[in-house]
Design a protein around this nucleic acid. Structure first.
Length: 521
RNA sequence: GGCCCCAUCGUCUAGUCUGGCCCAGGACACUGGAUUUUCAGUCCAGGAACAGGGGUUCAAAUCCCCUUGGGGUCACCA
């Protein structure tokens, strides 16, 4: 039997990071077994522009390299893959249940059901449908139908039964059906509800393993009964823990109120801070419309898919007691459901960043430069079309920056290599500390300027030698000149190796910047 | 509240099924030190956990019971 898994997003306009983890586990399980991974769009609820709301979701899959074998854009043997276009299947299944007496038309208006529910709550007993419509005489029922009285269709739960599943992760889970209300499976307008549509589709798509977040565990009691009632074989279930918000055990939420809370949390703050500093530079609105709950956030801000994938895989899953760094190919080889952890796992921004550093360090200079360039052009630090000199500069910069480049967007921290000399911004406190305050700074800088003017060739090795010789000759500490020089030429207190910075700028720009710094003393 | 799920360092986790090799291992984070012109990095060192209580057993993080805590879910949402 070939393994078939699915991920069923509803078109919301963005891909949730927790949903992405669920999708990843589905994908990995299918690929690990040489099976198929299916994407189905759960758009049964509201009217919206599905194409528009779906695009970012598909984009997230592509960004991470998770391909699908059947689904939107590519179709497949069980097309269509949009629930809104599968009404004939739901209708047929519904009629079958009605015919078999396993579902019934409930003519009670919503207010009545609601009142029943409230009464049950007051009396502190579990709510069960009163099933008044079941007691209707055939003629009265026919009369209601003829006069077009509205109704919903409910699944008739066998209250004497128990349902149980053998979950891949939870083990044996059992429910007493005597405690389960009859779920609506079809709305007044004839459209199916999630619990029903999903069962029909999972059966038709021949899904073998339903791997989904644990918040669906309760739904499974109803769905399992539905599979049985429709005569479909039940798939196997694996309820994985949900992804929790950093530092909590609460499900990561996209809700506005929660986002505000996340922004304050010490663990999550780091990510929001990245957004706040990067997004405006890219000409994007800040974290309201793009926040760390969305997969897209990580792409826009310059994370590597490998890092996100690695972090997601390690959230609620581990291979053993030591393996941390895993590529998608490696994960595919080794992923199994029995090693999924049961408890919820909080997304850890620090660990994500650590994975990012790891995967970043495996890239070549030109790979990094290629991916930094779009950030530079978006921030208008580099103009398009990009010329060869710019490419060389960026390559050189990336090389000099080395491990300091954690996110691709970190390249934007080095705007001093792209701005005109007279537009260079100085870190004023560094300027004070290194240039204004030390009495000898100006003289030393002036003297060393002449050294720079004469140094040939103007490369890092020569400059370093020049400085060391000069420092020895002058009988000063290297620190006395180097800090002043750094601030004068780059405007900053920190950065790559000093001699790399100088060669990056070139002789002319160094001299002109030193002149400017001396003038503003 | 009913039902269901979960519970090892601050965090992610190994170990739990098949008790002893675990006075609990790794990673991230943190702290200290070394290296360095700054920062980043790198190297070394360090602190840090079996929720609590009862059992069972020669022996329990591991098995059983109870308590506590956390979470999910209870829609004509998905």
């Amino acid at each position: 039997m070939i393994v078939r898994t699915r991920f069923a997003p509803s078109p919301t306009g963005y891909m949730h990071i927790g949903g992405m983890r669920t999708a990843l586990f589905n994908w990995l399980w299918a690929r690990h077994n040489g099976g198929r991974f299916i994407l189905r769009i759960d758009d049964t609820d509201r009217e919206r522009n599905v194409d528009e709301a779906l695009a970012p979701i598909l984009h997230a899959f592509r960004w991470l390299g998770l391909d699908w074998d059947e689904g939107p854009e590519i179709g497949g043997p069980h097309a269509p893959y949009f629930q809104s276009k599968r009404n004939d299947f739901y209708r047929a299944a519904l009629n079958q249940l009605l015919r078999d007496g396993l579902a019934y038309r409930d003519f009670d208006p919503p207010e009545v059901t609601q009142a029943d529910r409230e009464a049950a709550e007051r009396e502190k007993r579990p709510f069960l449908n009163i099933r008044r419509s079941l007691d209707l005489s055939d003629s009265l029922r026919q009369q209601y139908l003829d006069e077009g009285r509205p109704y919903v269709v409910r699944f008739l739960v066998d209250r004497s039964a128990k349902v149980s599943i053998e979950d891949h992760i939870r083990g044996h889970v059992e429910w007493d059906c005597g405690l389960i209300a009859d779920p609506v499976i079809c709305r007044g307008d004839g459209s199916p509800l999630y619990n029903f549509a999903t069962v029909v589709d999972d059966a038709h798509f021949e899904i073998t393993h339903v791997v989904r977040a644990e918040e669906h565990l309760t739904n499974t009691s109803v769905q399992a009964q539905l599979f049985d009632a429709l005569g479909y074989p039940r798939p196997e279930f694996a309820h994985i823990p949900f992804v929790a918000a950093p530092g909590t055990k609460e499900k990561l939420s996209k809700r506005e109120k929660k986002l505000e809370k996340y922004r304050q949390s010490p663990q999550f703050k780091k990510l929001f801070d990245i957004a706040d500093s990067i997004l405006p530079q890219l000409g994007l609105k800040s974290s309201e419309s793009l926040n760390p709950v969305m997969v897209e956030f990580y792409e826009v801000v310059g994370f590597l898919p490998d890092a996100v994938l690695n972090a997601l895989a390690r959230l609620g899953w581990s291979l053993d007691d030591k393996t941390e760094h895993m590529s998608l190919a490696f994960l595919t080889d080794h992923f199994t459901l029995d090693r999924v952890v049961k408890g919820p796992a909080g997304l850890d921004p620090d660990k994500l960043l650590a994975f990012q550093e790891h995967w970043m360090s495996r890239l070549t200079t030109s790979e990094k430069a290629d991916r930094c360039l779009p950030f530079l052009t978006k921030a208008r630090l580099v103009r398009e079309p990009i010329d060869a000199a710019t490419v060389r500069l960026v390559m050189h910069l990336v090389e000099a920056v080395g491990e300091r480049l954690k996110l691709f967007s970190d390249i934007l921290r080095y705007e001093e290599y792209f701005v005109e000399d007279d537009a260079l911004q100085y870190d004023e406190s560094a300027f004070d500390k290194r240039l204004r305050k030390p009495a000898e700074a100006a003289d030393l800088l002036r003297e060393f300027r002449d050294q720079l003017a004469a140094a040939t060739p103007f490369d890092a090795a020569t400059l370093e030698e020049t400085m060391h010789d000069w420092v020895a000759l002058r009988g000063i500490e290297i620190g006395q000149i180097i800090h002043a020089l750094r601030v004068a030429t780059t405007g900053k207190a920190v950065g790559p190796g000093m001699f790399d910075c100088l060669t990056l700028l070139g002789r002319d720009r160094c001299l002109s910047r030193i002149d400017r710094a001396l003038e503003r003393l």
